[in-house]
């Protein structure tokens, strides 16, 4: 029992300690790391992946996985730009409608992924991987491989308007984190994610409609992917079929490194936040201390394995596939 307690504690606090350690390490090597400018840079870079991570956290808590985010974000970003331009090209001139429209679009895409997974009974990792390909493909189809630009000062204020030195989108992202936390802890849906992740059959036996919870989870994740797409567009001022590229690896890594167990039921939004920060601090810190940033993927790969191994109780898992 005692052994187990320490194990659980290690898992609970390890991500936060790792984050702290990294910050201390990088600051020690180069004090400029802790400068306000650099922190703003980290926060900005972390914002789109944070949204994706929040979305996928709900899915992982259910014990499923979603690998469709690259396609979903690319498609949403492209559609958002096209719609935005069609609606006048300026936030003031009716183009704001593109925002709710694209959120719905994201929800629909997520729901579709959920349907492929739940209705066709395909394991989620494959269903979502395939849907991710479909999303990217659709983005290519819509744009014909071109880049779509948005030049609206009002919309770009998300990036350019700074409050306390941080761009507006960072503040909005913080609010969205709180929203996600609220959904997780204070709504039936959020709690049902945990019920499904903790014991799907038991939840079903207790009368929880597991299928509906899963579909809702994927749709909710889709909404967050759409938000990520909007932030991505605001940050880059453009969208194309690769806007979402590399988000899958970063988001999954973040969530897992943050301490959300792949087996479901453990961890949550706050873990995802810590995870995203760890990943981005590593990425930024390597540059700050003068290491090439392409070592990042490899390092993250190693970290993700360590996190999964730490969080897996191998007595309970007879074999992995």
């Amino acid at each position: 029992m005692k052994m187990k307690l320490t194990r659980e504690n290690v898992i609970r606090w390890a991500p936060a300690l790792v984050l702290l350690g990294l910050v201390v390490l990088f600051t020690a090597i180069n004090p400029a790391f802790l400068s306000q400018r650099n922190l703003a840079r980290i926060a900005l870079a972390a914002t789109p992946p944070m949204m994706v991570a929040l979305g996928v956290t709900f899915i992982i808590v259910m014990g499923s996985i979603d690998l469709s985010m690259e396609g979903a974000v690319s498609l949403c970003a492209v559609l958002f730009c096209l719609l935005f331009l069609k609606l006048g090209g300026s936030l003031g001139a009716g183009a704001w409608l593109a925002i709710p429209a694209i959120l719905l679009c994201g929800a629909f895409f997520g729901w579709l992924t959920g349907m492929v997974h739940v209705r066709l009974q395909i394991p989620s990792f494959m269903a979502s991987l395939a849907m991710g390909f479909v999303g990217t493909g659709a983005a290519v189809l819509v744009t014909g491989g071109d880049i779509v630009r948005i030049d609206d000062d009002v919309f770009r204020a998300l990036l350019t308007w700074r409050i306390l030195g941080f761009p507006l989108m960072v503040h909005i992202a913080v609010l969205l984190v709180l929203l996600a936390w609220f959904i997780q802890n204070h709504t039936t849906l959020g709690r049902n994610f945990y019920a499904v992740g903790g014991g799907e059959e038991l939840a079903h036996a207790s009368g929880v409609n597991v299928r509906r919870v899963r579909l809702a989870g994927f749709a909710l994740a889709g909404v967050f992917y759409a938000i990520a797409a909007i932030f991505q567009v605001a940050r880059l001022g453009q969208a194309e079929s690769v806007t979402g590229a590399n988000l899958m690896f970063i988001a999954i890594t973040s969530v897992v490194v943050g301490g959300v167990a792949l087996w479901g039921g453990i961890g949550g939004v706050l873990n995802a936040v810590v995870g995203v920060l760890i990943v981005n601090v590593i990425g930024n810190g390597m540059v700050v201390i003068g290491l090439p940033n392409y070592l990042q993927d490899g390092l993250l790969g190693v970290l993700v394995i360590v996190a999964v191994v730490l969080s897996t109780d191998r007595r309970l898992v007879s074999f992995a596939k």
Binding site: L67, T253, V256, L262, G301, V304, I305, V309, T312, A320
Partner: peptide
């Protein structure tokens, strides 16, 4: 006991 889609994703990284 790391599921293969994660372990291979990480090795891919």
């Amino acid at each position: 006991c790391v599921p293969s889609f994660i372990s291979t994703l990480a090795v891919g990284g």
